[in-house]
Design a protein around this nucleic acid. Structure first.
Lengths: 110, 110
DNA sequence: TTGATAGTTATCCATGTGGCTAACTGTACC
DNA sequence: GGTACAGTTAGCCACATGGATAACTATCAA
């Protein structure tokens, strides 16, 4: 399996969890520390950190640690891969309906 | 957790697998029977059927059985939920950058 | 230097996921 | 009827996932 497919796997998997989507949503408004983010969720910190890890492996967020606080930020370019996949997909079925249209027009003797 | 979130869970989970994405891609070109679809994959039928099941539970595909053959078709409207989620997301960070622009303009004394 | 704060690491656990084989059901065809 | 074909059901297995607790490290502040 090529790299793009593996990337889609990890991105979609990362998005298939409400906690992780909420983190992405929150980070859309600006950077935040891990504990700022964690506050909103009824979950032990280590559990929450796993979600951060999944998002980071997928490349959807980045983080850097200064002093003892790790600050996370969104990586919108990586999220855009989702839209690209969707657009590619839509192109396929658009082409199909276009072909159906042509077929119908031909049948009408147009 | 509300229904929309649960729906996103199952949709993104369904998409987080290369076999299932390939099925969606194939169905974008038109309907196909289970065994037509399965042919392309090096996998036992029952294993493949699970993927079909996951896609169907997520609502991304539909199927009907006539005689002994089950025919599957794409449900593009359900796939569109992915784009809606992405657009909602982008709206959030677009708003943020817009605010940053305003801030910068104010600082410039404009 | 002593707390308190912010993460991190190490385990552990129940459940889910993705694959398999074997055996079964129902339909089509000769 | 008998056989082949298209799915389906049942059960098995290894591994991943999402949660937990306990104990640790490192930094900041009094």
């Amino acid at each position: 399996m090529d790299n793009y497919q593996a990337s889609l796997d990890s991105i979609f998997h990362a998005l298939a969890d409400p906690t992780r989507r909420a983190v992405i949503q929150r980070l859309g408004q600006g950077e935040a520390s891990v504990s700022d983010l964690a506050m909103r969720f009824d979950m032990a910190l280590p559990s929450f950190m796993k979600h951060i890890g999944v998002l980071e492996v997928a490349g959807l967020i980045g983080s850097k640690k200064v002093g003892r606080v790790r600050t996370c930020k969104l990586e919108p370019t990586k999220l855009a891969v989702v839209e690209k996949w969707y657009d590619d997909q839509r192109a396929i079925w658009d082409a199909r309906y276009k072909n159906l249209d042509n077929l119908l027009n031909n049948l009408k003797g147009k």
